[in-house]
Amino acid sequence: MAHANLLTPPARIPPQTALQLSQKAALVLSSAPTSSLPWPLSLLFSRETPETWAIHENLLLAALRTGDDAAARQILDRLTTRFGAYNERMIALKGVYDEALAKDDKDLEKVFNDYEKVLKDDPTNISVRKRRIAVLKSLGRTADAITALTVLVENSPTDAEAWAELSELYASTGAWGQAIFCLEEVLLMMPNAWSAHAQVATLHYLSSSASVPALTLALRHFARAVELNDSYLRGYYGLKLVSQKLLPLLSESSGSKRNADEDDVAPPKLQSVKKLEEIATAKLGEIVRKYSASKKSQSGYYEAEIIAARELLDRDGRSER
């Protein structure tokens, strides 16, 4: 894993990294971000840059995550003195802080009511809208969260984050069709995001793991993910899993002539699926081998993923024997 950096933290922060990040709080807090000189001089000799505040913001999130509430409070105060309490972003950050410190559902309800008030004054504050949805989620009101998110994407349909979140919520309720639709919106915005391709594939796979058209789509999206990133473990994992499921179905149906025009996607050729399965197996084996040979922190893979891949390979080996 790359060295944790507060300015550009990784997209996915595992607990250890979060801890590493929040331990930098003392360092950041030890030096004042703004100059202590009187007014005209402070303009000339200011050390603050936009990066200073990006670091503060990321540190705040890391500190809240690791339970360092005192440091979080200090950072929040700094940000508030700099940007004022009514800054759009500050309202959202303050909300994050309140949410993290909420002890029970009652506290969360209170935060939720605050958000409602803010939104009544300014319905365009998208970040507060998102926080409100997050509170709904942590209160367990998934249906309400979905409704709120549909309103959000209705008003701001270019928000990939919101679409992805909505997809996840739909998937958690088992509404696969809607979930897939939402993720396809994400794909339309970022057509080369291999993780989004893999996620679409996963949803197709989960939606019906025994029908050929769904599995075909899953296979193709996994293949696309691998095509975009040829060291993408999740892509190979999915490729192998799906093709294993697909092989018996295809060989079954190849005997009886299927009416292919019914589906809008033609099923792949048996040969190709076999080949893909072999490729995925070989690649997974290679990744697992390399991972155990090299230093674990440098390979860029997460241990859990490697364990899952190894397990999949083992299962395969056992069934062959």
Binding site: N155, S156, P157, T158, D159, E184, L187, L188, M189, P191, H197, L217, R224, D264, V265
Partner: peptide
């Protein structure tokens, strides 16, 4: 943003199944 969404659909339509 709705207009941008339309433009996105036009530009990246090839990721979608027919």
């Amino acid at each position: 943003r709705a207009l941008v969404r339309g433009i996105n659909l036009r530009g990246n339509a090839n990721v979608l199944s027919p």
